Amino acid sequence: MASSINNRKASEIFKAQALLYKNMYAFIDSMSLKWSVEMDIPTIIYNHGKPITLSNLVSILQIPSTKVDNVQRLMRLLAHNGFFEIVTNQELENEEEAYALTVTSELLVKGTELCLAPMVECVLDPKFNVSFHNFKKWIYEEDLTLFATSLGCDLWEFLNKNPEYNRLFNDAMASDSKMINLALKDCNFVFEGLDSIVDVGGGNGTTGKIICETYPKLRCVVFDRPKVVENLCGSNNLTYVGGDMFISVPKADAVLLKWILHDWTDRDCIKILKKCKEAVTTEGKRGKVIVIDMVINEKKEENELTQIKLLMNVTISCLNGKERNEEEWKKLFMEAGFENYKISPCTGLLSLIEIYP
């Protein structure tokens, strides 16, 4: 049966409505995830050593009896979204449902080597994500970053003024770095022949420490804002240096830009890359710049992966940055004076790009 709306079938309209409602209520997915991290549920299940029943979970959390049903609703949504697995506890007569960890929720167990809970806490903090209510204002006002619509200044200025949020942000970046480090362990070819490397925007040194542990003969400098590195102590082959990457970058055989360039406009990226080029170019010797960032490839990658990258492309616009496809990356490299580049896989989301002067 046809509808009076543009001659659409009723089934098409109902499907469109479902898609609309799915996106309209998508924030509930994010808030449910935030709730599970705030309640430390992945860690509780991990420490329990086996799937935990609803009654055990609410007992540990000391949930009022009037809210038990709401906990179950949240857990069922999270399970449907892949964060938990619902299993039946055969030992109980009533076969009470229980919840087990999945690979995804294992990444939220606090105290483990690979824990992304700080990323969830940072990204979903109200102080940061309230800006996303202001797309309209941001779009109409020139030179206004999305964060500035709610924070009153850009992110970096806000972090410099607010130590607690600076810590929250740095913890989030450090947790993400551990995921990248997992990939770097299989990238020996990147570090072959290098005596020194500078990790620009290296934060508290999570990646730098892994590089130094894996390659003890390689000298690593973690280079970041003075506020970030001022109280950090290095080791035999790891040092911390404060500075501004727009002014100069310490000299080395290689410069690492891990998830840095996507924060900046094309014009700023070219400035940064030129400083990095100066850092790896000395008399008679030319090193390389190593970029770890997203490369959008809609024609060759799975739809779900592209969707995440496009979501990140909108998200990073809060800093006036962008995610780029290969042609956009190539344009930056050439305009910054580099002659060649090579792209290799790194993680599911990120690629490793070696660029040469």
Results as ranks from 00 to 15, higher is better:
G337N: 06
T315E: 15
D266A: 13
L349N: 11
V289H: 02
E301L: 04
D293F: 03
L332T: 01
I292E: 06
V280D: 06
M294T: 14
E301T: 08
P345K: 09
A252N: 08
E278V: 03
F338D: 09
M294N: 11
A254F: 00
K299S: 13
D266P: 00
E339S: 15
R286C: 07
K342A: 14
E335D: 14
C346V: 02
W259I: 12
E298Y: 03
L311A: 13
K258F: 07
I296F: 05
E328W: 01
M294F: 05
C318V: 07
T265Q: 14
L257Y: 15
N303K: 13
H262L: 07
L261H: 06
I316Q: 10
D253T: 08
L349P: 01
S351R: 12
L257C: 09
P345W: 12
N320C: 11
S317F: 13
L257R: 01
K300G: 02
E302Q: 12
G337E: 09
W329V: 00
E327H: 11
E327Y: 10
K274S: 04
N313E: 08
W264S: 01
M312G: 10
G287H: 10
V314F: 10
M312N: 06
R267D: 15
D293P: 00
S351V: 05
A254Y: 00
K342D: 11
K322R: 15
E278I: 03
K274D: 04
K285H: 13
L349F: 14
E323H: 02
E283P: 02
C269W: 03
R286P: 01
L332Y: 01
G287P: 06
F333Q: 03
D253N: 15
L256F: 03
N325Y: 11
S351C: 10
L273H: 02
L261Q: 02
